[in-house]
Design a protein around this nucleic acid. Structure first.
Lengths: 409, 409
DNA sequence: CCATTTTTTCCGAGGCTTGGAAAAAGTCTC
DNA sequence: GAGACTTTTTCCAAGCCTCGGAAAAAATGG
């Protein structure tokens, strides 16, 4: 059902447009905003004026005076203290938080190595709240407000609506409902998201990646995917992650850590590559964590000479290729950005991946999609979770009363 | 990039809202429109008045006078002669068109049995144009305008942007660009769509199917899918069809008509069921068209006693189940509506389908999604293509000048 | 010190929605 | 059959928001 709109809707929408534009080019002038958005200069001025009055934007004093003639432009930017957001990342054996101001600048970072596999919902909430409070304590002095939104990025399947971690390879317990309790403990709005699904948000306002459609493909502890289709992050906000690693590759195939068999991950996850390279049986379930160093070493071996190590990467590539080929049968082929430790061995896998796509898609479609690599997956996830939280704040400010209600005070 | 909006945008949007509401409950009053849309009675009245002036809506004389007190309501409906649309369906050995008025009522139907496999782009355009003109001739007397939009539903892969049939099992030639030439020949806007992708449009304004997410799964000559996700038809308007039938099931498996091997269709398409039931080798490529009667007969055999026929349907079910399981690993599980000749044998396949889903998805997720059957697939496709074309007209009317420009004349 | 240039603000006009009043067009009751 | 009552629809002034153009502001150049 379509919803009606009115003058208020127009204002909210155009505030959104202005805020969105400023996110893209973080410092801008009223005139530039007008040009970029299509709004008249008058409107751009009126809207930014209201946003400044609302404490959302500030005028940034121009440090280096330009040599230009004419009235000097007043540069606009986000008021850093307008809100505080937190990005929490939970992975096997570790938990970390990055607290950022409304301009997106990191204010504090706290990382903790800890056993999280045994935590139940209550202790998980306590641990996260503790971590966030520690980071907030570092921020307090700078006069920033309390954290208003927190985005939790976890491996595994999540349910955004309930704030639930359905299952995660990092935890023994299932169906951990952490959202509501964490919200109460911290007085913040909580989003529980799959880390890979979130990745496209990491480049949301980044100038470079302007492609409307692309996918992040994470290869590491597991194999995950984040999709951007039609300029929006796919299924963001629903309970669904694109569980690329668990698309079935071969019926009744190698043992996967998820309990099933034949998943892509059971061939392309770090443990699967390790298992194959060491000649272990495909039915063996690998419980231990494979370090990045071990994978790097296997990759070196594979580059030196043919053998089990090289075969391991090739078979991983085939599995990924078939997964992509199957995906490309459902959605149009799109560029792939590899990340995670496996991305560093992309040279070993690329031919097999392209071969796998060619064999499993219609008329070899998608076998020639561009590949690229995003090196720092940790930074990407923090960036993504932060952007996700900031987007929520932006939306609140876009809808907030503005000039009229202000005048009524 | 978000686009700004203004008063004109508000008007267009609210016109859209009103038109959309009327599509849902095809006869309504100004008051009912107001209640359903959230617009004030004044606005609903003003907007409908403008739409009546623009020739989009009409007041329908109330035949049976209600027994109610008060000023009698004036019922609103679409002006049938506001526009004419055509839905063309091309399948193996046949071509049919249904011309409808703006209220969605069919005005003419022309069906032709003909060889289309050999047609090149020019002859295809000529054949379609001829068919549509024949149907238009039947309509002319009734005083309806020329066909303004035409939606072409074909089996196979299409490219909506170029108006191209990339490939179709019904045709020998590839890359038939028919859109532009057909547009010129008929003076209409042409959309070239995959028939299955279009299916969810068939229930677009149907009250019953209010589920935001569901999938049509066609089993017949081929195996195809139409997805509705988040209340919108998936990838409608791009060149992508959800080629469910060509998701790889088993690497190096049975021969598929698409030239690849191991596709779902190579197990679940009518020719694959026939091939397996008759004990033919899986590598044999079946060129002939299997009639619905033959499939019905095989289904009867399968119901009577175990044997090749029963195994054929079971193996088809497994392939479909694995395809769905793989799909449900990428998107959330959703209800499935089966259609096509295979839907009549759903009783033979359902257990295998659910087993296949359970084996190929994480934690058996989606193995319990509701199944249902849509009997008349032809009617569904015509309805879908008609609705698709009507939606285009609706959009034009929503954007059209309205009262102000009208006054300027 | 004044002309020029560029950015920003101010102001009236126009369009759209809204709530309330008025009009319209029936049924019901006496 | 006339007036009361009820319900739908239309009319109107008010409020917002955007827009275009004029005016103001704040610098540089000569």
């Amino acid at each position: 059902m379509l919803a009606k709109t009115d003058a208020e809707g127009v204002r909210a929408h155009n505030r959104r447009v202005v805020i969105d534009q400023l996110r893209r080019s973080s410092v801008s002038t009223r005139r530039a905003v007008s040009a970029a958005t299509g709004l008249s200069v008058s409107s751009a001025s009126a809207i930014t004026a209201a946003l400044i009055r609302d404490g959302v934007l500030i005028e940034i004093p121009d440090d280096e005076r330009g040599l230009k003639r004419g009235r000097p432009e007043r540069r606009l930017g986000f008021e850093p203290s307008a809100a505080t957001v937190a990005a929490v990342k939970i992975a096997v054996g570790e938990m970390a938080v990055r607290v950022s101001d409304y301009a997106g600048q990191p204010l504090a970072y706290v990382h903790r190595t800890m056993t999280i596999a045994d935590l139940d919902a209550d202790r998980m909430v306590a641990a996260i709240a503790d971590l966030v409070r520690e980071a907030e304590a570092l921020v307090k002095r700078a006069g920033h407000p309390k954290t208003e939104r927190l985005t939790l990025a976890v491996q595994g399947k999540t349910d955004a609506e309930d704030g639930r971690i359905v299952w995660s390879p990092a935890m023994k317990h299932r169906d951990l409902v952490v959202g509501p309790k964490l919200a109460q403990a911290l007085g913040a709005t909580i989003s529980v998201c799959n880390d890979c699904s979130l990745m496209p948000e990491g480049v949301r306002w980044r100038g470079g990646t302007n492609a409307r459609d692309f996918a992040f493909l994470f290869i590491g502890f597991g194999v995950g995917m984040g999709l951007r289709i039609g300029g929006r992050t796919f299924q963001d906000g629903t309970n669904s992650a694109v569980e690329f690693g668990h698309i079935n590759h071969v019926p009744g195939g190698a043992a996967c850590r998820c309990g099933n068999s034949g998943c892509v991950e059971a061939y392309a996850g770090d443990y699967a590559i390790w298992r194959r390279a060491l000649g272990r049986p495909a039915s063996e379930i690998i419980d231990r964590r494979i370090s990045d160093a071990e994978i790097h070493r296997l990759a070196e071996d594979a580059r030196k000479a043919p053998g089990d190590a090289r075969s391991a990467f090739e078979e991983a590539g085939i599995a990924i290729g078939y997964g992509l080929g199957r995906l490309f049968t459902i959605i149009d082929p799109l560029p792939i950005i590899f990340t995670g430790v496996g991305a560093h061995a992309i040279d070993l896998m690329e031919p097999a991946i392209r071969k796998g796509i060619a064999e499993s898609s219609i008329a070899e479609q998608g076998a020639d999609v561009p590949f690229s690599v995003e090196e720092d997956v940790d930074a990407l996830v923090f960036e993504a979770a932060t952007n996700h939280a900031l987007a929520g704040i932006d939306e609140r400010f876009a809808r907030s009363p503005g000039r009229h209600a202000e005048a009524a005070e």
